[in-house]
Nucleic acid binder design. Sequence first.
DNA 1: CTGAAAGCGCTAACAC
DNA 2: GTGTTAGCGCTTTCAG
Lengths: 340, 340
Amino acid sequence: MTTIKDVAKEAGVSVGTVSRALNEYTDISEETKNRIIQVANTMGYSPNLGAKNLSTKKKNGISILFSDNMEFSEMDDERGQEYFFKQLLGACRFMEENDMELAIYHTTSKRQKLKSYDQFCKEHGIAGTICYGLFTTDRYYKELPESKCHCVTVDYDVAGTNKVAIITDDMQAMYELTKKVLEKGYERIVFLNGKKNTEVCKKRLKGIKRALKEYGMNLNNEDVILTDFKMNQAEAKVDKFLQENRLDQKTAIMGITDFVAVGAYKAIMRAGLRVGQDIGLTGFDGISASYFTFPAIMTVQQNPMEKGYMAAKVLTDIVKGKTVDKEICVPYTILERPSI
Amino acid sequence: MTTIKDVAKEAGVSVGTVSRALNEYTDISEETKNRIIQVANTMGYSPNLGAKNLSTKKKNGISILFSDNMEFSEMDDERGQEYFFKQLLGACRFMEENDMELAIYHTTSKRQKLKSYDQFCKEHGIAGTICYGLFTTDRYYKELPESKCHCVTVDYDVAGTNKVAIITDDMQAMYELTKKVLEKGYERIVFLNGKKNTEVCKKRLKGIKRALKEYGMNLNNEDVILTDFKMNQAEAKVDKFLQENRLDQKTAIMGITDFVAVGAYKAIMRAGLRVGQDIGLTGFDGISASYFTFPAIMTVQQNPMEKGYMAAKVLTDIVKGKTVDKEICVPYTILERPSI
DNA sequence: CTGAAAGCGCTAACAC
DNA sequence: GTGTTAGCGCTTTCAG
């Protein structure tokens, strides 16, 4: 309840002076400044952020806006909530290290209908957002390119000025992963794809094909199986695959995501086969699911924590007026594990 | 950028009238009210929350404050980030359904040293928080009982007025789970405990013992194994257990958490045994890890989503001045799965 | 029922 | 260097 007025009275100065002392102004004597800071601290003063924003009219705050329609069951999600949460933590860490505040808000497609992206930002005094989980059909997704409010997205592109995307080089990552698989002598690759025309699927498929080509190999059409990113679909399709195919050649199943790979894991186990011995298996994402199986599944660690960190960093840069690249690739790591 | 003044001008009324029209006042004619709302909508007006707070002096906002020191590696965590995130989503859902805003903030032990809990709430105009992940050594944890700012915690108790805890009846849940295990004819129970003196461990242990007693059985001292809640420790201890023990009796390993159970799963697999056939296995929490193994692990679904939902509901009730129970149990579900 | 005006806590000119 | 004051956008008396 202590206001700037109270501090002023206690310190025997005017409110203006207190404001100057507390906001890194230079036109104030070191002495009074220190004294005021001292007084403010002992009184437990902290500024009312709302009033501050009102007065400055400058929006400084950055925040995370995440969309989630909560209609999904867990396994319908592409990689689960852990991946997202790590991004959150990464962003939090950056803000923490730089002594800034970060507010996180949730939105849904439904709620977006009530209020525009710009309205939302204005209401909350937000200078920029990290957007996560927006659907391409979402109002905010469509408004983003035109908005004056800065925005950094993770894992997908958005057009418009001051809009930056943090991504992984999917093609390259999948290429490297596939090469490591082929080095182990695998003769046949089965790719559990997501959806046919999704951007990320195309890129990862391209990576696989490139690696195979280098080894003078090909990906059979019937060895590209769609799963819609769903664990249970992957499981069912691999069940079927294992019933219909004899593993004459040394075979590896490569999942478009870790979840899909776990689905395959279950099917392989049910068939009484040994992962890593009778058949190889890889995933993509590096979420913990890939570690919970026995043996653990070889995968690409996407580093969502680092993605969140970078997103926060880039966003603060933009807000400060720096120019940054339109697309920023975060490094990945290939986790070599006994499933191959 | 539209302000209340703009709307007033456009509608040909005073700002006061606009304010009344937009805030469910009764002393205003239906007609002008509707007209103003109409104008506000077409102008895309939305109020500046900061100014609103300043003016009313009433704190209405509720928010989630989550602490995480980010020093942990994933597997050191008790149940992973998914559990927490689901709580978040539950709270978001409640707020959404009731058309209220929810801001989420992150804190750390370090950051808490800079600013008291009350200061934080005041700064952000927060009437109440849902606190999650606070360490018992944290400043905020210690300040909570004395604070005037309402607070609901999840999964642990806090003293003080207007402090409510949302919990699971651990004893009862573990009792029921154990009974279901014993019904299947298991003759020996091995309990992978967490830490000796943790409250939750005591409760769950009690539940097991009660069930065993009903069946005229006992828990051998050497069959209570500490894991510190860590998957890798559980794995190592079960490795050792399986080397040293012959499974003459039909044995089930019960984990204090799903993570611990997954550790056991890996050890069992490594030993070449079949989960659910050669040895039984259960977990606790109901996180997806319990579903990723083959076969899936029987467990207690704690319903973190519902916990978050309840937390938000209870908190808004408290803020509105309603009296609520000091402790609220959220129902759990036993997931019967082939690991038993 | 509606308008006018004070004031919430703070910053940023503008004086001195 | 420091005090004074207008004003940020909004709500809420108080008149009328």
